[in-house]
Amino acid sequence: MSLPSRASYRDIPLYSPSKVKCGVDLSDNTNLFGMPPAAERVLRETVTTQVSRYPVGYAPDLKQAVARYTGVDPSWVTTGCGSDDVIDSTVRAFLEPGELFAFPDPTFVMMPYLSKVNGVRGAAVPLKPDFDIDVDGLLATGAKLIYVCSPNNPTGTPASRAALERLVDHAPGIVLLDEAYAEFARESHLDLASRPNVLVARTMSKAFGLAGMRVGYAVGPPTLVAEVEKARGPYKVAGLSERMAAAALSEDVPWMKARAEEALAVRARLVAELETLGLKTLPSEANFVMVPLPGAPAVAERMRQRDVNVRAFQGLKGIGDALRIGCAPWTQIEAALGALRETLR
């Protein structure tokens, strides 16, 4: 007997970037400069009774901490199991099956995946030659939900303020702005969440160094937040994760800012070193760089054989093959550069 399955699911592959265990792993853009001290204290102080009981539904303490950090009322905050969960819940909350979900190309690789698993149609709109978003192209789709990541993953390039404002002003529905890398950028656009049709998603996985705890959030009008809350379910953030994230947001912001500055200093040094190898990076405002390089997947595989993991992309729209290299303490970057030099020889 063949088991029933959704026809639309049959051709969906699992999200599976190359994950060979390497001594140096620069493939995820996470904070490799340590753990937020207050979050570490919460981890050490966790007791058995906290583990054996459900967390409070809808993460109220975490919402309070996010609200203080972002300067909004807690009713303007929703949370989830990473920002990708918040994005997934937003797609479910605002799109009926078969409707259009628009996003730039290239962008966060989960967008086509989330389109398929939620039964909506993904509309990928190429970035402009200067890597800004194509506002006219996104609007021309007529999509009721438009996603923009700024700084963009995997390119590291930001969307311009003028483009974002025009998109928000003329969008036929909701704009979901993903600011996963906002703490590294020169400019945040969190204030756009005051508009009636904007949600701004963020994560604790990058600058705050809590990727393993899986915490994300979004800020926006309570009318939009309430719909996302319906789609997310009550217990999407583990109790320990909530307590650690809330502590980091409340006590570890100076620590986070110092680590972010360290990552940006490493990025500048990395860009200079790559230039000595004849490699030009895209203009990044994130904690990683993208290096267009023909044959990048094969280069990344040879680097993995030298115990270094970086993320390879193939045939990106307007870019071609490329490597994405995350910033980390310089000893790890030196190891990556050594592996890259040997590979390019």
Results as ranks from 00 to 15, higher is better:
T49N: 11
T49L: 12
Q50L: 13
V51W: 12
V51D: 02
V51E: 12
V51H: 09
R53E: 15
R53F: 07
R53K: 14
Y54C: 03
Y54W: 12
P55M: 11
P55S: 14
V56W: 05
V56N: 02
V56I: 11
G57V: 04
A59K: 00
A59V: 00
A59T: 13
A59N: 14
P60Q: 12
P60L: 09
L62R: 07
K63I: 03
Q64F: 04
A65S: 12
A65G: 07
A65F: 02
V66D: 04
A67N: 09
R68E: 15
R68T: 10
Y69M: 10
T70I: 07
T70N: 00
G71F: 09
G71L: 04
V72H: 05
S75N: 15
S75E: 15
W76Q: 09
W76M: 11
G80V: 02
C81R: 15
D85K: 04
V86A: 05
I87V: 15
S89M: 09
S89K: 10
S89F: 00
T90E: 03
T90H: 08
V91E: 02
R92C: 06
R92W: 02
F94Q: 06
L95T: 03
L95M: 11
L95S: 08
P97L: 11
G98V: 07
G98M: 06
E99W: 01
F101T: 10
A102Q: 01
F103H: 14
T107I: 09
F108Y: 15
V109W: 05
V109H: 09
M111H: 10
P112H: 08
Y113H: 15
Y113K: 06
L114W: 06
V117D: 01
V117Q: 01
N118P: 14
G119I: 02
G119S: 04
R121V: 15
R121F: 06
A124Y: 13
A124T: 08
P126M: 08
P126H: 12
K128H: 05
D132K: 05
I133T: 03
I133K: 06
V135Q: 02
L139F: 01
L139I: 08
T141H: 05
T141V: 04
T141E: 04
G142P: 09
K144T: 00
L145H: 06
L145D: 10
I146A: 01
C149E: 13
S150P: 13
S150Y: 01
P151Q: 08
P151L: 05
N152T: 06
N153C: 14
T155A: 08
G156K: 04
P158I: 03
R161G: 13
A163G: 10
A163I: 06
A163P: 02
L164N: 14
R166L: 00
R166T: 06
R166E: 09
L167W: 10
L167N: 08
V168G: 06
D169H: 04
H170E: 12
A171F: 02
P172S: 13
I174D: 09
L176R: 00
D178K: 10
D178W: 03
E179D: 02
A180T: 15
Y181G: 03
Y181K: 07
E183Q: 13
E183Y: 12
E183G: 06
F184T: 03
F184E: 03
A185G: 02
R186Y: 00
E187D: 01
S188P: 11
H189L: 06
L190T: 11
D191S: 14
L192Y: 07
S194Y: 10
